[in-house]
Amino acid sequence: MIHNESHDLPTDAVLSVIDVAKTFTLHLQESQRLPVLRGLTFDVARGTCVVLGGESGAGKSTVMKMIYGSYGTDSGRILLSHHSEVLDLAAAQPRQVLAARRDTVGYVSQFLRAVPRVPALDVVAEPLVERGVDRPEARDRAGALLARLSIPERLWKLPPATFSGGEQQRVNVARGFIIDRPLLLLDEPTASLDARNRAVVIDLIRESLGRGSGMLAIFHDADVREAVADAVVDVQAFTPAREEVAA
C-alpha cells in the first residue's frame, strides 16, 4: 500500500531513510543475532551525491541492499519519490519494489549479473528498449557509451560473462548510466578500473547529477569520492553495540 507520506519526504529529496534498523539472525548458528544498524537516518536530495562512509564491514552495502530491496528492513521507513507519489520501500509489496526498480531506482555494482547469451551491446541498450526506444537507436547510444568506457567494438556482440572483471564492471556502469533515473545506487562502481576509466565514471556521475538524478554511493577510491561527493553519511555512527544474544 502506498501511504501518503509526503510530509516526511522533503520536497527536494528523492530518498529519505528514517530510523531504519537491521539485525541478522543466524538460525544456523544457534540463532545468534547480529545487530548491524540502528536509527539510520539521512536524505538524498535531487542532483546530489551522498556517499556512505565507514570501515569495511560497517554495513554500507547492507544499506544499499535495503534500499534496493535485496535485504529486508526490521523497522523504520525508506521513502522514495516514485512517479508522483511517495513509496515506503521498507513496507512495500514485492510488486511495488519491482516497479520502483524498473522505473526509479538503478543499481550499479562491481558484479555484473547479466542474462546469459545476450551481447554486451544489448545488455546496455536494454533499459532504452524497455522505454520504447527503437532498438537500432538504442544500440547506437549504447555503443557510444561503451566506447567512452573503452570497451572495444569487437567485444560488443559478445556476452559479457566471458569478459574480465574490469570489462564487466564497465558494462555494468554503462547499463546503469544509459538512462537517467531519479535515484542511482552505486556500490564500488570503480573498484577494478584504471585512472582513465575512473575519470570517465566521474564525468558520467557529474553529468547525471546535473540532469537532476540523486545518487547514493560507496566509493573505495578517495579521488572519486572527493570529486563527486556532496555529503557523507558515516554508517558507523548508526552501528549498535554488538551484543551476542543466544536464542
Binding site: 541478522f24 539472525t25 543466524l26 538460525h27 544456523l28 540463532s31 541492499k65 530491496g69 535485496s70 535485504y71 529486508g72 514485492p94 519494489v97 519491482l98
Partner: peptide, 21 residues
C-alpha cells in the same frame, strides 16, 4: 515469501537459511 533476491540474499526463516547455505 517475497522478492526472490531478498529471500535468497537475506533469508529470514531458519529453513530458508538452511536451503541457501
Amino acid at each position: 515469501s517475497g522478492l526472490t533476491d531478498r529471500v535468497l540474499d537475506d533469508p529470514q526463516a531458519a529453513y530458508t537459511q538452511l536451503l541457501v547455505s
